[in-house]
Design a protein around this nucleic acid. Structure first.
Lengths: 224, 224
DNA sequence: CCAAAAGTGTTAGTCGTACACCCATGT
DNA sequence: ACATGGGTGTACGACTAACACTTTTGG
């Protein structure tokens, strides 16, 4: 192929992250306020241009660190966005990843070289975002629901363990439904992907709840 | 962002297709032989550079038509490949799609502007391919297995209908396992995604088998 | 009438769901 | 001792899996 052919020139790759957390039963997503054009002053998902010398996932992790200080997290591909006019300056194809973390484990930078603010916003209170990020986020939420049902994605929200009432509330929050406590516990245990620890922690009641952790091995079984 | 920044220059997007078919119980994939460098004379998945004025999926369909004559088919994203050195001439990020079709419905061009041959090859007899296409194909096969179990992907193999023995053989071929005829039929019907037609066709026996079609509506239910 | 594959029904076991009572702790 | 949420077991219905015989057609 010919590098000089204008059909292929000035293409770039945008890496985009929809990073979620759940806090007190509210599902939130991380957004930043842009310091520079295009879309100066507007909220946006954490995103940026991929460098020539890095892989897509590495580029996204670099952007996340630069713009929010968050690092060492799990992110997984969920879709590609390629509308020709989705970015004003040049043709950028957006490659979008999602993840879910415990926001208390990180110190969120409120201002960086390229951002003037950053925050975790409830997903039902999202403002108008830069680029096609509202559309990307909508798709991310859709895929998030599927992934917590079909995979062990939530292990990344709980790297050091969780209690049953706590994780149940997360499932209920993201999926917008409730579960019977007894059946929820049985089903989650039956997947074989978690195990009991000797620890116990208080959640909402006075009685301490047992702490469970996700086991190493992968699962093929659906959760819900 | 600065268009002239060398960090972002000379990036391109590769669209790549893993197009499958199943014939007499053998799962096959479409590959072409490259007419020009890089990798002249080598077999490869159908792939090419995305133009500036087209979306990813449209670019892939254009490439498929140019290189094989096949058009009007369903393709879905399955992964992104971004190793920095995956393409020799310049930095190309590969965006990979998979599909499955009835090869008898198409006339495969054996030679085109950019290819000197094309063929459907059993997936256990794949030669060394250009670029990172062996790696891409391996991942495609993995995802294909999941998608036929969890979605109605196989509707695209049978746009005008199928018989039970016929589609069972496809599931068995792709998943490398067997199913009980009676239970297979019950399970597939219970998904609600197919319906009987008045037609009947012979498959392997002398007794004609009923023809079923995929219904319009989507499903959330797993198949197997 | 024989061969080859297509079609069907029943049963046992497993899994999902609905539901009620006791337990541990803080105040 | 009481209030709050955490922990457990059982029974019923639905689904999954195992399995054998009858039907249709071509030769």
């Amino acid at each position: 192929m010919d590098k000089k052919n204008p059909k292929y020139q000035n293409q770039g790759i945008h890496v985009v992250s929809a990073l979620f957390t759940v806090e007190k039963g509210i599902t939130k997503v991380l957004i930043i306020k842009r310091k520079y054009d295009p879309y100066q002053g507007m909220w946006a998902l954490v995103s940026g241009a991929l460098y020539n010398d890095e892989e897509v996932l590495d580029g996204l992790k670099r952007e996340l660190k630069e713009k929010t200080g968050i690092e060492n997290i799990h992110l997984e591909l969920f879709d590609v966005f390629s509308r020709v006019d989705r970015s004003p300056a040049m043709r950028m194809v957006g490659i979008a990843y999602l993840g879910i973390v415990d926001k208390e484990k990180f110190h969120l930078l409120k201002e960086t070289l390229k951002t003037t603010d950053a925050d975790w916003i409830p997903i039902d209170k999202i403002p108008k975002l830069a680029f096609d990020h509202n559309e990307i986020l909508e798709k991310a939420i859709e895929v998030l629901k599927i992934r917590i049902r079909k995979t062990d994605l939530l292990r990344h929200l709980y790297p050091v363990g969780f209690t049953m009432p706590e994780i149940q509330k997360v499932y209920e929050s993201i999926l917008n439904r409730t579960f019977d406590r007894r059946n929820f516990r049985k089903k989650l245990l039956s997947t074989g992907m978690i195990e009991e620890t000797p620890r116990a922690e208080k959640f909402e009641g006075n009685k301490p709840a047992k702490v469970y952790i996700f086991k190493e091995n992968q699962i093929d079984k659906d959760v819900f």
